[in-house]
Each structure stands twice: as structure tokens, then as C-alpha cells.
Design a protein around this nucleic acid. Sequence first.
DNA 1: GTGAAAGCGCTAACAT
DNA 2: ATGTTAGCGCTTTCAC
Lengths: 347, 347
Amino acid sequence: MAVRAARGGHHGVSIEDVAKKAGVSTATVSRAVRGLPRVSEKTRQRILDVASELGYVASSAASGLATGKTRTIGVLTPYVDRWFFYKALEGVERELHRQGYNLSLFSLDSRTLERQRTFTKTMVAKHIDALLVLCLALSMEEIEELRRLDIPLVAVGGPVEDCPSIGIDDVAAAALATRHLLELGHRDIGIVHGEDDDTDLNFQVPILRLDGFRGELERHGSGFHPEWEVRGNFTLASGADAFDELWNRPGPKPTAVVCASDEMAMGVVLQARRRGVRVPEELSVIGIDDHEFSQVMGLTTVAQDPVAQAQLGTQMLLDELAGKAGSVHDVRAEFELRVRNTTSAVS
Amino acid sequence: MAVRAARGGHHGVSIEDVAKKAGVSTATVSRAVRGLPRVSEKTRQRILDVASELGYVASSAASGLATGKTRTIGVLTPYVDRWFFYKALEGVERELHRQGYNLSLFSLDSRTLERQRTFTKTMVAKHIDALLVLCLALSMEEIEELRRLDIPLVAVGGPVEDCPSIGIDDVAAAALATRHLLELGHRDIGIVHGEDDDTDLNFQVPILRLDGFRGELERHGSGFHPEWEVRGNFTLASGADAFDELWNRPGPKPTAVVCASDEMAMGVVLQARRRGVRVPEELSVIGIDDHEFSQVMGLTTVAQDPVAQAQLGTQMLLDELAGKAGSVHDVRAEFELRVRNTTSAVS
DNA sequence: GTGAAAGCGCTAACAT
DNA sequence: ATGTTAGCGCTTTCAC
């Protein structure tokens, strides 16, 4: 007893408290509160009443220990303050809480050194029943480690080696954006992409979009302009910088530019206008995403829906946990061109 | 044994496995892996080796049950896709994982009906050791329920009844924004606020900012223009709508407008320019927040730092959990005027 | 339909 | 420094 008191079990109604007060065994309480059969309606009701009167809620640690399930799924993401990521997070959350699951958030910001530790120690600690990875730059070892976890796993927003994933066809999306410009008569097209030099990181999206752009240009027979391929990092500021880079360089300028994200596209538009380059009259700009700001800004873009993608991924995980093996599988999400007013026919 | 196998305990190295293989008791393993004293360096090393060889990680459910601690703290937020909130979330995450804590995210989107359920059932289930509430619209019953949880609690970004909170002085921030306009010579000033009609919800921020605005005007002796007080909901789109509302109304227009958030301010700027009203020549606009887009857009604003606020709040919670009673307390966070180019002297 | 009892994997006295 | 042991609160088999 001394032990128990010392461990601070003071506040917290246990199943036993309910059982006693209801005059039944803990087993019956357990069945009753979980809505299991083999309890008469009468006793169930009595138990439920007592439970709510006492404010009883099962300890997740205890039931987790007993069942091996935690009813929480993890979300692993590189950022939480970037559009795709917070939208997706929103989607996961929505789907999860609707089902009474908890969401455990892991953010592996940069390529920090303490990363590995976090990964192994904290995540693998059986905290979670399943994991949803958001389009993360993962090393091979990390991926390997995740697989070893042996829990349902799905990637959203970008392919992850050997792992079912949900997301748009990035190559096709970038190609679509490029084609839109081509069809408007543009021939001098630049791109603001996000490809990093860093290798060994499993972050394909920027590369895929760049590929889509180049592929479409090639298909069309347009020439390459390596000097018009400039790198950004998916932020608004980097888009503005990209415009400067393009315009500060001597020589001819592109008449249009496709951006690997709306944020960068908006950066380009804003900076162009600030420097007196009219959009779309002198420069057409198209993005990918359909950020909520894009509509107000009138940005032409290739839209995708991260919330829906994340919800789908979550649902698959939940289905899998519910016993429907094979629920988790690859899905190419939808995307579509939304023409607004940052693109126009070449003059 | 049949039981154990049936419960899927197959993958999962237990403390006993380690103990056996290392030839010690589970108690010693427990001490060793947690870095507790009373273990010789020799055995500790041996245990650690075995543990890592076996890939042992303590089950959080088991240790949670034994200790009554979960090493996870909850974050309760109304949105995850709005600036202040995702920034704060980022701050919490950063601070938490640095300390090996987990983050459990609860999003109580709208005033949905299933809200109550989520609240009670899921949250209160002892999942968490402490809770950080993000500037949420809470009903009195909900607040009451939170207090009953009897765990360290702190609010960030907006006052919550009877609960220590970290955030800027919203009245002062709005007053500062207003004063800036006044000092530029503006006398016809409008506001885009976010005050909702909904009562009984503990979401003070919009009201406080509106108060700050009105107070400053009054202090200055400027007249009120109720028709220039228009409501938004903190989004870019609502800012654009607010501009329309202001400009579509017959009669004189304000020469300046303060907005309760940068997103709304940007909406106003964008819509003004689209409709041919020059900013800042014909209309000065100031926001509150310093959204990452604001710098690129050149928006004048009163800046605050949600990441820092959240980190501070998290640290307080952690300190409290570490035994430093009284660590959680009110803090007025900093804010400062950042003049850029959406405001200018009245012409 | 209900109860007794044996765990789940870990921690914390207490003894040695 | 290390082992023994009694729980933590819940679930689940098996008997009744």
C-alpha cells in the first residue's frame, strides 16, 4: 500500500473502483465499457452509469500493455510549418480523431545529428501502432529501421523506398504545368525547382518535378536552357531570390517560368512585380500545389489535395490495423490545372 | 503461454530477454538502460551492448503503467493549418524531442458536436503528462474538465480562464499598430478584426485586439467609425473580402486600416491593388504577426514570435514535470513594430 | 452472463 | 552493486 500511494495513484479512477461500486468484477466492467457482448443490458447500463459518475476512463498504458495496441499512430514529417505538411497533418488528424485514435507527431527537422537517436529511441518504443511518413528525406538506414518496426507504414506526398505511397505523379504534374505554358506559345521557359545537391536522402519530389519539366520540353522539341533552371527551397523567399537570380544574369530572359511549388511561384510573382516586370504580360508564372493564397493572388497552378491524400493514407493504416490485410497500397492522387491570371499567351 | 503467443508478443524484445542474455536481473537492466546509478560500469556496458544487439527498447506502455508517467505532452489546438498554430506547434515539437518527450496532437477544429467526446474520452485517458493549449476557443465546461485533469497546464497565444498563459499583450499590440498609423497622420482608420459573435467561447484574442484599436483611437481623440470596423476570420481570403466590404460601401473611405493578423492584411493589400487602389499611397495597411510572407510582401506589421512562445511554454511544462513546482507562470511575450512599405504618411 | 486469475513489461522498494 | 518481489490497471482465457 505504501508503495501504491507513493506512486501517485491518488487521482485516477481505476477499473476496480468501478467494479466495486457496481458490484461486479473488473472483467465485466471491461466488457461493458468497451461495448463487448456477454454482458446483460441491465448490468451494462448500471456499469456505464457508475463509470460516468466516477469519471472513469481506462488507462491507455494499462490497456496498451495488456493488448499490445496503443491506439495511436505516428506521423513523421520534416516540417510542420510548410504548406503540404501542415495540410496533410490536418488531414491525418481529422481522420484519426474521428476514429478515436491518437496522433503522435515526430518532426525530423533538418539533417541534425541527434536525429538518429530520436528515431530509434523515441519512435520505436512501441508508442505507435502504425506510421505515416510525410514525404520525408530519409536515409537508407532510417528506412531500414522503419521497416524493422514491422508496423503498417505508408508514405504520403512522395515516394519512399519500398513503401506504399500516396501522392500525385510529380513528373506528370510538372509536365502538365510546362505544357500549359507551351500551349500558350511560350518557348523560353525557366524553372524554379527544389533539387538539392544532397544525395543519399530519399526526397524525390524536387527531382521528379524537374524531370517532368525537362521531359515535357524535350518532348516538345524545345531547347534546354540550363541557365534558366534555378534552385529554390520551396519557400516564398526562395522564389523571390530565384527571380532575382534569373533577372540579374545578363542575356535574354525567359518569358515564362514554372515553379515546383506555389510558394516559390508567389515569390517569383511578387518579386517580378516589385521590380517592374508585369505578370502575366511580360512573364507568365505557374506553380504546383494550389496553396490557399494562390486563389487570392490569382496564381495559375496545378492543384493537388494534401488533406485528402493524408486522409486516405490514414484510412488505409486504420483498415490495416482493423485486420484488413493489404489495405495499404500505392495510390496516385489527383491533380488538375487551374488557370488563373499569372499566365497568358506569349506576346 | 498460449495466451502470450496469441496476443502477438512475437516481435518485441523484452527487458527479460536482455536480462537473461546478459546474465543479470531485470532490475539491473532497468537501471542500466536508464542511466541510473548503482550499476557497475562493467555490467552497464555489457547490458547496453546486449540491449543494442537485441534492439531492445523499453515498452512505453509498461513503463508508463509502472511509473504513472507517459513522457508525452499534449497540444490542444483549434487549427494546424494557420500561421500562429503551426509555428507554435513547431516550437513545441522542437523543445519536446530535444528532451525525449513525445507530442500528442489534438485538434478541436470547429465547434463540432463530437468535440465533447474527443475531449473526455481521448484526452483524459492519461495519455499525457501535461498539456499545452494553443489559444483555443474553449467552453467553460471544457476548461473545467481540463483543470480536473490535474496535470500541468499552460496556454500559449491567448489567455485561457484561470490558466497561466504565454502570449503578447494583444491590446497593446493592436494599440501600437494603430498608433503607428496615427503618427503617420492618418485620421480615418478602419480595422479588420476577427471578433466572432459566438459567446461562451474563450477566444479572447480578436476582442482584445479590437479593444486595443478602439482604445488607441479614443486616447488620441479620433472619432469612431463603426462602419469601418469589419469582421474577418484571420484568413487571407477574409482580408480580401473585408477590403471589398469597405470599398463597396458608399461614402468616404478610410486612408488606413489595421488588421488583426498579417494574413488578413495581405488579403487587404492584394485586393486593394487588384482593384486599383494603391498601397501605401492611397491606403496604408498594417498587420499583426509577421508571417513569413510579410517580409517578401513588404507588409508593415507588429511582429511576434510563436515559436519562442511555444518553446517557453513547453519548457515550463517540462520543468514542472521535473519537479520544479511553480515553473509554469504567466509571461507577456515580446512584440515590435516592423515598418516596411505598406504604410506611409497620409497624403 | 459473470467471475477468478494469470499475465502484459516494466519500476521501485527492500533485502542482500 | 545486484536480485527479489510486489505491484501498475487492464484484458482475456477458462470455469462456472
